[in-house]
Simulated scan of single mutants.
Amino acid sequence: MLKKSLAALALGSALLAGNAMAADYVIDKEGQHAFVNFKISHLGYSWLYGTFKDFDGTFSFDEKSPEASKISVSLKTASVDTNHAERDKHIRSADFLNVDKNPTATFESTAVKSTGEGTADVTGNLTLNGVTKPVVIKAKLLGEGSDPWGGHRAGFEGTTMLKLKDFDIEKDLGPASQEVELIISFEGVRK
């Protein structure tokens, strides 16, 4: 009897320990709680803002062990939108994103390093315009908890700077426009 009780206790402990591991989430694109935005200087006089409207992603997260977190995002480059049809057409061309040849951009994390309370550096491989380069996203946990519909959510924001030439974007936009800031904000719904 004691052996059966110990075995049941061990099994229960193993199950509870498994629940303490990172949870898997789906980025809530459908509810419009996720954004992949960017900004770049326009000739040094103002900022040009844009977004990608078609993307998907998943992540694993455990606030007690952020180093075990992972994220994967895939976006359709043709979904770029800067609120100007002719500019968007040019950005989709071979001068910039070359969407006919490279219709998808991806990010796959390779490491997460905690940098403070609710902040981390997320290192990963970004594939854009057919080029894969390591990037570091400065990430911040915005919140985690139950939602009004019986689900569980976690929200993050992150930023990184990308040099256009690193991704074979050779169009010269002038000295003030050599880098673009990528701004990501999303909620995920636990699976």
Score class of each variant (00 low, 15 high):
residue 139 A to Q: 10
residue 157 E to H: 11
residue 8 A to H: 07
residue 114 S to K: 14
residue 133 K to A: 08
residue 3 K to M: 07
residue 140 K to F: 11
residue 149 W to E: 08
residue 101 K to E: 13
residue 47 W to R: 00
residue 142 L to S: 03
residue 5 S to T: 13
residue 43 L to G: 04
residue 36 V to E: 03
residue 5 S to R: 11
residue 51 T to S: 12
residue 42 H to S: 01
residue 175 P to W: 07
residue 121 D to A: 14
residue 173 L to I: 02
residue 74 S to L: 13
residue 29 K to Y: 14
residue 65 S to G: 03
residue 187 E to H: 11
residue 74 S to D: 15
residue 57 G to A: 08
residue 60 S to P: 04
residue 142 L to P: 00
residue 112 V to A: 04
residue 69 S to F: 12
residue 132 T to P: 01
residue 99 V to S: 08
residue 189 V to M: 13
residue 46 S to V: 03
residue 130 G to E: 05
residue 175 P to Y: 02
residue 118 G to F: 12
residue 4 K to N: 13
residue 12 G to M: 14
residue 40 I to D: 01
residue 135 V to Q: 05
residue 39 K to C: 03
residue 120 A to M: 11
residue 149 W to A: 08
residue 34 A to T: 02
residue 112 V to N: 01
residue 142 L to G: 03
residue 39 K to I: 01
residue 38 F to I: 09
residue 111 A to K: 15
residue 16 L to Q: 04
residue 38 F to Y: 12
residue 168 D to R: 12
residue 144 E to N: 08
residue 88 D to G: 05
residue 34 A to G: 04
residue 115 T to A: 11
residue 15 L to Y: 01
residue 2 L to A: 10
residue 160 T to A: 14
residue 34 A to R: 01
residue 48 L to T: 10
residue 119 T to C: 10
residue 157 E to N: 11
residue 20 A to Y: 07
residue 143 G to V: 08
residue 143 G to I: 11
residue 67 E to L: 03
residue 112 V to F: 12
residue 113 K to H: 08
residue 62 D to Y: 06
residue 127 T to R: 04
residue 65 S to A: 15
residue 88 D to N: 13
residue 122 V to F: 10
residue 139 A to I: 09
residue 159 T to G: 02
residue 38 F to Q: 04
residue 102 N to M: 02
residue 8 A to C: 06
residue 150 G to I: 05
residue 155 G to T: 03
residue 110 T to N: 06
residue 88 D to P: 03
residue 62 D to C: 07
residue 182 L to Y: 03
residue 85 A to T: 09
residue 74 S to E: 15
residue 20 A to L: 15
residue 163 K to N: 12
residue 90 H to R: 05
residue 53 K to W: 10
residue 42 H to P: 00
residue 106 T to L: 09
residue 70 K to A: 13
residue 109 S to M: 04
residue 160 T to Q: 10
residue 75 L to A: 09
residue 68 A to N: 15
residue 67 E to T: 06
residue 15 L to N: 00
residue 148 P to W: 13
residue 2 L to R: 10
residue 190 R to E: 15
residue 20 A to N: 08
residue 109 S to H: 13
residue 182 L to V: 15
residue 130 G to H: 07
residue 3 K to H: 07
residue 52 F to N: 02
residue 105 A to Y: 00
residue 60 S to Y: 12
residue 70 K to L: 03
residue 165 K to E: 14
residue 94 A to P: 01
residue 121 D to E: 14
residue 6 L to G: 05
residue 40 I to F: 00
residue 55 F to M: 05
residue 156 F to T: 00
residue 160 T to P: 06
residue 139 A to S: 15
residue 48 L to D: 04
residue 180 V to F: 01
residue 163 K to A: 11
residue 95 D to R: 03
residue 169 I to W: 00
residue 135 V to G: 01
residue 20 A to T: 14
residue 22 A to Y: 14
residue 83 N to I: 10
residue 148 P to Q: 05
residue 70 K to T: 15
residue 166 D to W: 04
residue 86 E to W: 09
residue 95 D to P: 02
residue 143 G to L: 05
residue 69 S to Y: 13
residue 85 A to W: 09
residue 165 K to A: 14
residue 120 A to W: 07
residue 16 L to P: 01
residue 116 G to P: 09
